[in-house]
């Protein structure tokens, strides 16, 4: 592979579009044997969380009956999540509203903060999205077990299927349940990673192409950044919706 590399490519910067996903530890901490280092990932988590708080602080600094622009936006966000929870889970989902609200805005601001040049996209880390998705699915399983007891295992038995097919259907149901955290985590992580990789590749073309050709990938990056904002929103929305669906499944079964 390396032997036949063209001269031009060798002169150009080595292409590594995945470089900005590297986690760099700034400060190494160890607490009772647990690694609690501060890395760029952790830093941007905090920045995203800080931006969420800043946004809502500015929006509701002096709340008025007739809202201003930012307050309208904040209220729209609140009512958006409220609508999702009420639509999917219903009355019994009210206690989970703060969690889902936090989840949505944390993920949304992580996605959006990742678009700032030179920043780090926390949600492009599989381990972060996996932590969230495993926690959510694990919680929904435990909550369903808590609400319904052993009756909850009926969840894996599909209704209206002949008994003969049960040995086939039950493993499928179990596998689809186990696939939940994986698909949830991978969807968000892959979307973020793919989008940012694409942007990185395009930026690489911007710097490697001569000036008369560079504007093509540059224009593409400008448009694609807009698409990424949209994707960041959609993915946060999907993540939230699926969380609600899983919680609803454990409350109402199906």
């Amino acid at each position: 592979m390396t032997a036949t590399a063209p001269v031009v490519a060798a002169a150009a910067p080595k292409m590594d579009p995945l470089h900005h996903f590297h986690v760099t530890k700034y400060l190494d901490f160890d607490y009772l044997g647990i690694d609690v280092a501060i890395s760029n990932s952790v830093l941007w988590m905090w920045i995203a969380a800080g931006l969420v708080l800043l946004f809502f602080h500015l929006a509701f600094k002096n709340p008025r009956i007739v809202p201003g622009r930012l307050q309208s936006l904040g209220e729209a966000g609140y009512l958006f999540i409220r609508g999702i929870v009420d639509d999917i889970v219903g009355e019994k989902g009210r206690p989970f509203f703060p969690y889902i609200f936090t989840l949505f805005f944390f993920i949304l601001f992580c996605n959006l903060a990742g678009l700032i040049p030179g920043s780090f996209t926390v949600t492009s880390q599989l381990i972060v999205t996996a932590t969230f998705s495993l926690t959510i699915v694990g919680f929904s399983f435990a909550y369903g077990f808590y609400l319904h007891g052993t009756h909850y295992f009926k969840f894996f038995v599909p209704t209206g299927v002949p008994v003969l097919l049960m040995p086939l259907m039950i493993p499928i149901e179990i596998i689809s349940f186990l696939a939940r955290p994986v698909s949830l985590a991978v969807r968000l992580f892959a979307n973020m990673t793919a989008g940012h990789t694409m942007l990185a590749v395009m930026f690489l073309y911007v710097v490697t192409l001569p000036w008369w050709g560079a504007w093509v990938p540059f224009g593409f990056t400008v448009i694609f950044t807009g698409v990424e904002i949209f994707i960041g929103f959609i993915q946060a929305y999907i993540f939230t919706i699926l969380t609600c669906v899983y919680i609803n499944d454990s409350i109402h079964m199906h």
Partner: peptide, 20 residues
């Protein structure tokens, strides 16, 4: 449509992850 789009798109990205 947007929810469906996110699901369909995710399928392509699974392939991307496999490639990586």
């Amino acid at each position: 449509i947007w929810i469906g789009m996110a699901f369909v798109e995710a399928v392509a990205l699974y392939g991307l992850v496999v490639a990586f």
